[in-house]
Design a protein around this nucleic acid. Structure first.
Length: 155
DNA sequence: GCCAACGTTGGC
DNA sequence: GCCAACGTTGGC
């Protein structure tokens, strides 16, 4: 099993929105970056866990945990001309963009903010910090444990 | 609102 | 295939 981190702007779709969604599940669509796409299509497996990170937020922080409940499948928003994220260069036969379904597992006891992450020696190599822009990034097991400990005030 | 990082596009 | 221009992300 692998660990991940997915980002969303809380103004667009927050963790609370996920908790309020039917079955607490949503399709993680509209990713239009090829590196992130590769993680969605090839890396994420059913049962993998992911941190839910609020970007462009006050404060920017890891706020919850969710689980991959459906593995990579074509992102329909890329194929729908009426959609904001329509990609005229993609097609249903050979889809360019993929998404997964994620289900909320739980909210963290306390959010773990970006400054805390940056201040933690154990998290200095985290992809979140190293490769800022990617909306889907892997998390190492020791990083996962460290963040969980911080959220529970055990750090 | 600025800007750094970095992916993508397109001219040559 | 190089590289300049441009767009996007997201921290600050």
């Amino acid at each position: 099993m692998r660990y991940w981190l997915i980002k969303s702007e809380p103004d667009v779709f927050s963790f609370d929105d996920l908790l309020a969604a039917p079955k607490q599940t949503t399709c993680w669509d509209s990713v239009r970056n090829s590196s992130a796409r590769n993680f969605l299509r090839d890396g994420m497996k059913k049962g993998d866990l992911a941190f839910y990170y609020h970007s462009n937020a006050e404060p920017s922080a890891i706020v919850g945990i969710c689980e991959v409940v459906r593995e990579g499948y074509p992102d329909h928003t890329a194929l729908d001309p009426s959609h904001d994220y329509y990609d005229a260069d993609s097609n249903a036969a050979t889809p360019t963009w993929f998404m997964v379904d994620v289900k909320a597992v739980k909210k963290l006891a306390n959010p773990v903010g970006l400054p805390e992450i940056k201040n933690s020696a154990a998290l200095s190599e985290m992809a979140l910090v190293k490769v800022g822009r990617l909306s889907v990034v892997p998390v190492r097991p020791n990083e996962w444990e460290t963040v969980i400990a911080m959220s529970e005030g055990r750090s």
